[in-house]
Write a protein that binds this DNA or RNA. Structure first.
Length: 637
RNA sequence: CGGGGCGUGGCUCAGCCUGGUAGAGCGCUCGGUUCGGGACCGAGAGGUCGUAGGUUCAAAUCCUAUCGCCCCGACCA
């Protein structure tokens, strides 16, 4: 990638150093594409920044609104965005931070195709698993292809073809590539798109200990990446989902724009996605179970709430909620569906991620990662149970698995459906009256419940945005795709893998969600498209213009990423645009202050301006920029 | 995929119910006056009203179909 051409490079001392005598860029010459010196057009009048005064109507979340208004992106289709020059600069800067941290832990950068032949995905079995979320297409010969959603298969394919010995391990491979996912519902601007950039890394180790080390390395690298990008984040325990594997951590940024819920304990360090989170709840004393089960009519009662209010009914936590689900298991081209019951306390919500993991182990042990669950359809429910939802119960049910939530263990004198429409049963004691196939944690935690890790912590639940996810894959892909090496004993063993992803654009969007005010974006300097803007407030004033020219030149020569707002606009327009775009710093040059020999240095984060001597402006700005950079680059959470 | 909403100059929207020559503000161009937080005056350019069909003398407006976008839900390494 040659960032510049002969034609648009200005003559600088640096340039001569970078070029060989015949004018070809030296292979060592990699001037940053972001540096002012390497680009001629850093003048706003010629730079493409289509700011919008009014709020675009189809933006909902703040980052989306500001990205549109500040001239960073434009939408091409649902979940498809064009990154305009400002966004591209930010994306490049984020990518570079990621690259540095990946390289620092021994990562080797690859670049894989986004277009994959179907065989690659058939090899791992995920061609069928990924379903409609995968973009699929045919070539002219009718061959099946897809656009890569992730690259486990692609990397593993290289690994299986070329890694032969434990002596070649460990390997840490990564790339920064475009991913395609046909999301059911793209939304929230750059937060959920159908085409996006991801840094994905894969590690290959000889054993679990190696994986543990690789995982920890990635974890540390991720902490540095997010810290450097100015994001406050939490690392949470996460569900591995269809990735399979033994352990996974998500990196989360707390924001209402997020789509996940994180439960965390303020007392200890416990934090988990609610798909995975557990909690302590007080036991309930039900007394002795002396009464026999009694069926009673409950006309019109359909919900837990109905039964609470029904005369002769029961409190929600004295009810057993009976849900019918269907497990979908897949093995090769075979699809197996298994209906089963999930039992929860009346006031608890089922957690489908936990349910899926539990049933998978029960009914489909050798391929559990290919299992999904869905709620049963009304017809299925009636056919199976002989009653409709609202009157269901597990008493006497033996033909399908019954999975009960731990919170029901030992409970007595409960009320539940009778499996006869408009009838319920009371005096039900779980262990006495219901044949439970398996006990499991099926409940979704809610705010205010006890922390599972410490004694007196109380869980909080908050919305969060996933900006990264790291998995210990184990041998799932190496086994299915046949990636193995000989170990020291000469025995063939599957490679132990990990996979680690960062959503690049999500970092950009998250930075905006976290750092903005009513005037616009307040970029962390590491992510900002430019570090500073030079804004002469009246271009018609010759002295103002000359001073601004000089400061711009000075900053540019100092290597600062500076944009020169040379537009013939009114001060208000320039100042508002500068605040909107979110340059961390501004130098404002106006006729009044100039008469005192001063210009203004403005800090976007604090919105404070200070007067500085004209002659010192470049130096002060350079210093402040350095300080800001160091503050982010050196303080690692 | 279910529910809701919306497609009218570059942007934000009015007009549609009750059919009759397509509008406003912002932006853009030109001239002038202004010039430290989105100026003012004057003159202009710019729209197959998402698309296709239908009803009608006449459709942005009514009907049908279709495409697209947004929101809620389902879904989501």
């Amino acid at each position: 990638m040659r960032p510049v051409t002969n034609r648009n490079r200005s003559k600088t001392v640096k340039e001569k150093v970078l070029r060989t005598e015949d004018g070809v860029l030296s292979q060592f010459a990699q001037p940053s594409v972001l540096n002012a010196q390497s680009c001629r057009i850093m003048r706003w009048s010629n730079y493409f920044i289509p700011t919008l005064r009014e709020e675009p109507s189809d933006a909902e979340v703040i980052s989306h609104k500001l990205l549109l208004r500040a001239g960073f992106v434009r939408q091409m289709g649902a979940g498809i965005y064009t990154y305009l020059p400002l966004a591209q600069r930010s994306v490049l800067k984020i990518s570079e931070i990621i690259r540095q941290e990946m390289n620092a832990i021994g990562g080797q950068e690859f670049f894989f195709p986004a277009l994959h032949p179907a065989e690659l995905w058939q090899a791992s079995g995920r061609w069928s698993v990924m379903g409609p979320n995968m973009f699929r297409l045919k070539d002219r010969k009718g061959g099946d292809y897809c656009l890569g959603m992730t690259h486990e298969e692609a990397f593993t394919d290289i690994a299986r073809n070329h890694l032969r010995s434990y002596k070649q391990l460990p390997q840490v491979w990564y790339q920064i590539q475009t991913k395609f996912r046909d999301e059911a519902r793209p939304k929230s601007g750059l937060l959920r798109t159908r085409q996006f950039t991801m840094k994905d890394a894969y590690t290959f180790d000889i054993d679990q200990a190696g994986l543990d080390k690789a995982f920890d390395d990635q974890r540390d690298a991720y902490r540095k990446v997010y810290s450097r990008c100015g994001l406050d984040f939490v690392i949470v325990e996460a569900d591995s989902g269809s990735m399979g594997g033994s352990a996974s951590n998500e990196f989360m940024v707390y924001t209402d724009a997020g789509e996940d819920l994180v439960a965390s304990c303020p007392k200890c360090r416990y934090a988990a996605n609610t798909e995975k989170a557990q909690s302590r709840i007080p036991a309930i004393d039900d007394g002795e179970s002396t009464e026999a089960v009694e069926k009673f009519p409950t006309p019109g009662v359909r919900t837990i709430e109905d039964l609470v209010n029904f005369d002769g009914g029961a409190a929600a936590n004295k009810q057993v909620k009976t849900l019918v689900f269907v497990s979908l298991a897949q093995k090769g081209h075979d699809i197996k569906t298994t209906p089963f019951l999930a039992l929860l306390r009346g006031d608890h919500q089922v957690n489908e991620a936990k349910l899926a993991n539990t049933i998978a182990k029960l009914v489909n042990q050798d391929a559990w990662e290919q299992t999904a669950v869905r709620p049963a359809h009304p017809e299925e429910i009636f056919e199976l149970m002989g009653a409709h939802a609202g009157s269901l119960g597990a008493v006497g049910v033996t033909k399908v698995p019954v999975i009960a939530d731990e919170a029901l263990r030992g409970r007595k004198n409960m009320t539940t459906g009778a499996n006869v429409d408009d009838h319920h049963l009371r005096n039900v004691s779980i262990e006495r009256d219901i044949k439970v196939t398996a006990w499991a944690d099926l409940r979704t935690v809610v705010e205010g419940e006890g922390c599972p890790k410490c004694d007196d912590g109380v869980l909080r639940v908050a919305k969060a945005l996933e900006v990264g996810h790291i998995f210990k894959l184990g041998t799932k892909y190496s086994v299915s795709m046949g990636a193995s090496v000989l170990n020291a004993e000469g025995k063939e063993v599957p490679i132990v893998m990990g996979s680690y992803g960062i959503g690049v654009e999500r970092i950009l969007a998250a930075a905006i969600e976290l750092h903005h005010d009513e005037a616009g974006i307040k970029f962390p300097i590491t992510v900002a498209p430019f570090q500073i803007v030079v804004a002469p407030l009246n271009m018609k004033d010759a002295e103002v213009k000359v001073t601004a020219d000089g400061i711009y030149e000075g900053l540019s020569k100092a290597g600062v990423e500076v944009l020169y707002d040379d537009r013939d606009e009114r001060a208000g327009v320039k100042l508002n645009d500068a605040d909107l775009v979110g340059f961390p710093f501004q130098i404002r040059i106006g006729p009044k202050k100039l008469k005192e020999g001063k210009v203004e240095f403005y800090d976007r984060a604090t919105r404070q301006a200070e007067d500085v001597e004209i002659g010192q402006a470049v130096e002060i700005a350079s210093q402040r920029i350095q300080q800001a950079l160091q503050a982010l680059n050196n303080v690692i959470a």
